[in-house]
Amino acid sequence: MSGNGNAAATAEENSPKMRVIRVGTRKSQLARIQTDSVVATLKASYPGLQFEIIAMSTTGDKILDTALSKIGEKSLFTKELEHALEKNEVDLVVHSLKDLPTVLPPGFTIGAICKRENPHDAVVFHPKFVGKTLETLPEKSVVGTSSLRRAAQLQRKFPHLEFRSIRGNLNTRLRKLDEQQEFSAIILATAGLQRMGWHNRVGQILHPEECMYAVGQGALGVEVRAKDQDILDLVGVLHDPETLLRCIAERAFLRHLEGGCSVPVAVHTAMKDGQLYLTGGVWSLDGSDSIQETMQATIHVPAQHEDGPEDDPQLVGITARNIPRGPQLAAQNLGISLANLLLSKGAKNILDVARQLNDAH
């Protein structure tokens, strides 16, 4: 009898209710805020589980004197976190989706994509230029951005401005803007500013005609071990179906173009009346040469937790077992079709030249 009692006690200790789920994140304040929001949602869904947040620095956090596009290494903000995932030191990792490459290392998958916040870019102005827009900034004003995508589009749109690289986390960039006289304004992701509670610093939100956004911008991705079915089931509740389908289309477009950090590629997606609209573009580094096109596809946005595919093969690095396969494939095909259209119009040449120029500098 006593033996059975011990077995029952052991089973209770090993039951999922007692389990601590370890969540990996970057150390920056924004990353911690984003991770806290994901953990809060998981806690609400699984009140019996405990969650421990483990923060670590990544290569991208450490190399702050070089433009991201020049470092010449993929997975700048993800490699150390993936290493911890691989060694079973954490069970899942919360990322900004735009930091996750469209091809993940073997053994990993994006197990959830959370509801997207505003994906557009924002302009934050130096205190002396508050009330201005990019259009009304004085001639030769210097605007800071760490992104080739932003610089290429904005140089084309605002030729009277000069664009220079600015690195560091959000706090560091804002301090550089406010305390030094080098920059009249800087460009940042609206979602990051909003998550930090800095709505009052948003001086201008850039519309798609001015600057399309990065693939996955404004959404959070939760990376897990691809074979860890328990954790895949656990994080599945975080999937937002519309965000998922938009981001599958965007990531398929980028992957098929073979774009990345070192080339200016941008997108804009919208879901309306059962249609998914995808606009994508590529630019030369100075913005003088560009190709942009829009395509659409009829896609039914499923309700969360309709029964999805059981075999769960990944699409552009994403596993969404609780979302039907048909809409996911339709979104992926839309991204591939748009990429093929741009490639047929000469996108590869623009991107190759951009890559060579970026590598040469």
Rank of each mutant, 00 (worst) to 15 (best):
F129R: 06
I53V: 11
T172P: 05
Q194E: 06
R246F: 04
G48R: 12
E73F: 06
E242S: 04
G287L: 05
D178P: 01
L161V: 07
R201S: 01
L97A: 10
Q275S: 01
D289K: 04
Q155Y: 08
H83Q: 13
V142S: 10
D311M: 14
V353L: 06
H300R: 05
H160R: 14
H160W: 10
Y277E: 04
T78R: 02
T58L: 05
G107R: 09
I54D: 06
V39N: 08
D240R: 01
E306S: 11
F253G: 04
A151G: 11
L85Y: 01
G308P: 06
V90T: 07
I299C: 15
R116T: 04
P208C: 04
A320S: 02
E250G: 02
K115L: 13
I318S: 11
V143P: 03
N171E: 13
E89Q: 13
L234R: 08
D286G: 07
G346K: 01
A44V: 14
P159R: 10
D352I: 02
L278R: 03
I299T: 14
N88E: 08
K115V: 10
L188V: 03
R355Y: 08
G216I: 00
F163N: 15
G317P: 11
P47I: 04
T294G: 14
A320M: 04
S45A: 11
E162V: 14
D307A: 00
V142P: 07
G107N: 07
I63Y: 06
L334C: 14
G326V: 10
V124C: 08
L104R: 07
F125A: 05
A152K: 08
D233M: 07
L42Y: 04
L148Y: 02
R149G: 00
E135V: 14
G260C: 15
L76P: 10
E82L: 08
S69K: 14
L76I: 06
K98P: 03
R225E: 08
L137A: 06
T319K: 05
D121Y: 03
T109H: 08
G274E: 15
Q292A: 08
N171M: 11
D359L: 05
I187T: 05
T66L: 09
M295H: 03
S45V: 10
R150T: 01
P127A: 11
A297I: 00
N118L: 06
I54W: 04
S146E: 02
L170V: 11
T243C: 01
V235G: 04
D240G: 01
L170A: 07
L64I: 10
G335V: 05
L92W: 02
L137D: 03
V130S: 04
N171R: 08
D61T: 02
E162I: 11
A347I: 03
M212R: 03
V130M: 09
V103Q: 15
L170N: 10
Q155T: 11
V282Q: 05
E89I: 13
S141Q: 11
L170H: 09
L351V: 11
V235I: 03
E117C: 13
A226L: 08
L276W: 02
R164T: 12
F158D: 09
H239S: 12
L238P: 07
P241K: 01
P105N: 06
S146H: 06
V235S: 02
I113S: 03
Q314H: 10
K128D: 09
S96G: 10
M212Y: 02
C247N: 06
Q304G: 11
K98I: 05
R175N: 11
S45M: 07
